[in-house]
């Protein structure tokens, strides 16, 4: 096998009208974009160029390898693009969920605040709630005294006084 002397014997015999010697040179330099520009995809591996090469160069083999490399590159790019799409979609979903959770929290807080304010208004405006509490305690105290549960009665009495004291 001799080096390529660019004699051009492969050029007129190519049925696809390619320039095999230039293609061979591009692939030898690992320049896939240039090889693609020179029509690497169009090579049908008919071996005409290889049969006419006076240097006995493995042209068809190199073109096949180049096409395989191009295919592998295309597949890798497709996988990469798919992964990127998935990742971006997941990121979007996560961001949306986060925003929704934040909004819900904000709403819960507003609700709690509103309730607290309402309770405040209730306790200051109408002391019905404290009265009910006092009545319930009194009922429980009466029941405890009737059943002679002394410890409970003491605790309930203390609670009743504590309820009266701050107001």
């Amino acid at each position: 096998m001799m080096p390529c002397i660019h004699c051009g014997a492969c050029v007129p015999v190519c049925p696809r009208g390619l320039w095999p010697q230039q293609l061979f040179e591009a692939l030898g330099a690992g320049d896939l974009p240039r090889a693609q520009h020179l029509g690497l995809d169009a090579c049908g591996a008919c071996r005409q160029c290889q049969d006419h090469c006076p240097s006995g160069l493995p042209l068809t083999k190199r073109f096949r390898e180049g096409q395989d490399a191009l295919l592998a590159l295309t597949e890798a790019e497709q996988v990469k693009a798919l992964a990127q799409t998935r990742f971006l979609a997941r990121e979007q979903r996560r961001a949306q969920a986060e925003a929704e959770a934040l909004e819900a929290k904000r709403q819960r807080r507003a609700e709690a605040k509103r309730r607290a304010e309402a309770r405040q208004a209730q306790t200051s405006g109408a002391p019905g709630r404290q009265d009910a509490q006092r009545a319930a305690l009194a009922r429980a105290l009466a029941k405890a005294e009737a059943e002679d549960r002394l410890r409970d009665a003491t605790r309930l009495r203390a609670a009743l006084t504590a309820l009266d004291e701050p107001s």
């Binding site: 696809r16 009208g17 390619l18 320039w19 230039q22 240039r34 520009h37 020179l38 029509g39 169009a42």
Partner: peptide, 15 residues
């Protein structure tokens, strides 16, 4: 000249 010729070459040679 080669670079020019390659650049001006039609993208898909005859099939």
């Amino acid at each position: 000249f080669d670079a020019l010729a390659e650049a001006r070459r039609r993208q898909t040679p005859r099939v």
